[in-house]
Design a protein around this nucleic acid. Sequence first.
DNA 1: CTTGACCCTCACACGGATGTCAAGTTTTAG
DNA 2: CTAAAACTTGACATCCGTGTGAGGGTCAAG
Lengths: 123, 123
Amino acid sequence: MRIGDLSAATGASARSLRYYEEQGLLASTRSGGGQRHYPSTAVDRVSLIQSLLSAGLNSAAILDVLPCISNEAIRTPWLADRLTSELDRVNKQIEDLHRTRDILAGLVEEYRVDQPRSQETAS
Amino acid sequence: MRIGDLSAATGASARSLRYYEEQGLLASTRSGGGQRHYPSTAVDRVSLIQSLLSAGLNSAAILDVLPCISNEAIRTPWLADRLTSELDRVNKQIEDLHRTRDILAGLVEEYRVDQPRSQETAS
DNA sequence: CTTGACCCTCACACGGATGTCAAGTTTTAG
DNA sequence: CTAAAACTTGACATCCGTGTGAGGGTCAAG
């Protein structure tokens, strides 16, 4: 598939896909004219990148972590520590987010008591 | 308390506190010489701002939402929708983060099987 | 009054993923 | 063959909370 197809399949802009490649996160082969071609597995790869990005890992961190998915050989103890520390970070982030959610939920609830126009936006 | 005290109490830099004020999120009175003074309630206020910021609300969104905490009068139906939509966003973010955490946790686990040097970094 | 800690207001810089524009090339449909 | 659609590289712009530095003012203690 070409970059437009991958973009459509993942929701990532072509710009972002080129950026991922530039950062070493995503590989592509080139056609004779220089256009990128991706295997269908690239869709999952991009999804994974997007997940990690939205979890607050930057591209360098992802680069550290991603290879261990595809390449068992490079699993160093250092990498385990890296993974664990990222995991801790994400866990903490989830905790924080839970607290914030409770704040917001409390406000919504409090509001609904005053003006009962239920919208049923259940969690 | 002065800005240095509030900074120490909240962990937010003085720069950030001034920024919050500039964005209308945080009020202060000024001494004769122009220095900021805060009531002790400002500590909670700043904590709240920090929570919302880290939940991905930008200062404009917080400005929309924060007043309803201190001022009951301005609770419009529009505000309820705003709150609900931010809540939905945060909930979705939590979901995504859970998935990402599982990915990372899976990697850590997978790794530990191969190289059993337990570090006991429990979640 | 003097000194040192603290504070003031600009104003510029950054990080990092993404948007966007320009000028040129490749691919595909007709 | 030709025109349109899709792609290429390169460069600059944007967002936005925060860092940082300059140049100067304030405040409390000695």
